[in-house]
Design a protein around this nucleic acid. Structure first.
Lengths: 348, 348
DNA sequence: ATGAAAGCGCTAACAG
DNA sequence: CTGTTAGCGCTTTCAT
């Protein structure tokens, strides 16, 4: 049952060559005589030999492994992102060392980094939302850090590589769409405002309304949950009975808002139009189907890993360190019934 | 910028001791003089030394890393499960090497295992649903495998450790609940029947109906998507206009069924009761709120890792190899409005 | 309580 | 084309 690991030495002995030659074979080096190669390959097969990645890592100081730090896997976005990260890492020939944060607000970054570095990760994808000042460590830690890091969904910073969805643009799209449909008083249910992404969506809403009066009582802060969306809409409608549309900053809260509307006898979209954010698979089946802003989280993850791969390559070749980039992915408006003028006309 | 790794040697030299002593200190061995320890610790701190996990793994033949193989992270269940796996692994002091399968039906298991073993994982959590015969490899591969493996959501097999939710019991609960509420003709929208879990839920439905006639035209096969739930209910209602309740095998399909009912003017639960499966966060906000069967996927993952940890310990100590266990987690019925008799009475 | 030697499994840098 | 010699960073003997 307890198999002893078969080493390059045993293969070498069995094949009557040096370990070097075996090494050359398993690394597909060209400078091996075809027959020798054949023989070695056969012995490898017979013995069931498999190279030790660990030994290689030790020598080369790199492990072909990427560290991924995530948060909130229970939500739709983050799990898609991780999926994208894994896919791209895999395609680039990297393994993934996964760590999940439980308290994204204040994280013991130092220890986490140490942990990953002690495992010789070649780079790190930081897929944790920027909340409060949970990025303050960057300035202190990063300069001493010996591997490239890419940040996801983070406010762009000089000298850092960041990949994010353009939430502001998304918020603008959603709001502009509502204006285009003829709605006048457009409320906002935000995410928790210590989240950078939530603030960006709010800014987008403001952008779109800039020429219209932007009043304070059109905004309520939610916490991403359906429950907060339900409460949020109640409150908003109390404050502003004349409100005829709301940009709700994620689909879950929009679902809550939908219930809220139903309970108050407010028809969507006839009396009130709603646009969400995220395009979770369920939102097409809400009642009514929810207009929303789709962000391609899988692509976000892939994109981050691609960028990280580039940085790793560059640092390996000791070229001038690659210029940190900020990549913004554009979201896409998905129009469904919860915001469509045509229903509105019919309804009124 | 390019930091050279600080080694135990440098620390030893700086502290005026041998590398051994340093090793003892960083491993918290008792046999070091207090003063020596102090000195070494101080040098470690000054130099910013961090032990290399890789070197340790090479020597000890273990890496304190668990391999996790997953699938379908974009769905609610699997991502929760992974979250649980990561949590428990972390608490037990293990890192996680993550691999995601893209085609769960036919997977190149061999290569994946090799990959993980070459990285000296101490054990593997196989969190891929059992679909078709994508477990056939077990008999061939496992005996030769040198590390413990725990299978999630897999049909229990002799000599394998399996942790799964009791889907059959869940199906029974859901159906029995509908019977208890006085519904008579209870249909079924299943998941894809090449999934073991889907078949189990179906068996649960059959169990509950065993004394009632179980007719074939009460069953439709879905594919877990809302769309298939929508189609499924249409078809079922065509076939059996007398049907007054349906157990829908996941919440997404139930959402589709809800729409289907609405479109046909069928009231839920007055004309038709619905029970789902999973208890995704949204289902409490469906219209009407969905009764469902909750499974604790986080606990599933945790439980699997705990079991794996035990197996690893045992194999390390070379005790008689631990007896493979099958652990079944019980799901829990969550009753909401989509199946409640009281509404029914009111409605009729 | 501490140190010296050996080596985990492999590759880099030379030689030949 | 192939072999030799080091040594990655650490721990495990076994001394002392």
């Amino acid at each position: 049952m307890i198999k002893k690991r078969i080493t390059i030495k045993q293969v070498a002995k069995e094949a009557g060559v040096s370990t070097q030659t075996v090494s050359r074979v398993i690394n597909n080096r060209p400078d091996v005589a075809p027959e020798t190669r054949q023989r070695v390959l056969q012995v490898i097969d017979e013995l069931g030999y498999r190279p030790s990645h660990i030994a290689r890592s030790l020598i080369q100081g790199r492990s072909r492994t990427l560290g991924a730090v995530g948060y909130g896997l229970e939500y739709f976005g983050p799990s898609r992102t991780l999926s994208g990260i894994e896919q791209q890492a895999n395609e680039l020939g990297y393994s993934l060392l996964l760590s999940l944060l439980r308290q994204p607000e204040r994280n013991d970054v130092e220890q986490l980094f140490r942990h990953m570095l002690s495992r010789y990760v070649d780079g790190i994808v930081w897929a944790v939302p920027e909340i409060g000042n949970n990025r303050d460590w960057i300035r202190q830690e990063i300069p001493q850090l010996s591997v490239p890091v890419v940040f996801l969904s983070t406010q762009p910073r000089p000298n850092q590589s960041v990949v994010a969805v353009d939430n502001r643009s998304g918020g603008r799209m959603a709001t502009k769409h509502l204006l285009d449909q003829g709605y006048q008083n457009i409320g906002l249910i935000t995410g928790p405002l210590d989240w950078w992404e939530a603030r960006q969506r709010q800014l987008g809403w403001q952008d779109a309304l800039k020429e219209v009066t932007t009043e304070n009582n059109l905004v309520v802060e939610g916490d991403w949950t359906a429950e907060s969306g339900e409460r949020g809409l109640h409150q908003l409608l109390e404050q502003r009975p004349d409100m005829d549309a709301v940009f709700v900053c994620n689909d879950q809260m929009a679902l809550g808002a939908l219930r809220s509307a139903r309970q108050r006898g407010v028809r969507v979209p006839e009396d009130l139009a709603l646009v969400g954010f995220d395009d979770i698979p369920e939102s097409a089946y809400f009642y009514p189907p929810l207009s929303t802003v789709r962000q391609d989280m899988v692509e976000l993850g892939r994109c981050a890993v691609r960028e990280l791969g580039r940085m790793i390559e560059a640092s390996q070749q000791d070229k001038a360190v690659i210029e940190p980039k900020t990549i913004l992915l554009q979201p896409e408006l998905v129009v469904r019934e919860s915001s469509v003028e045509i229903s509105r006309k019919v309804g009124e």
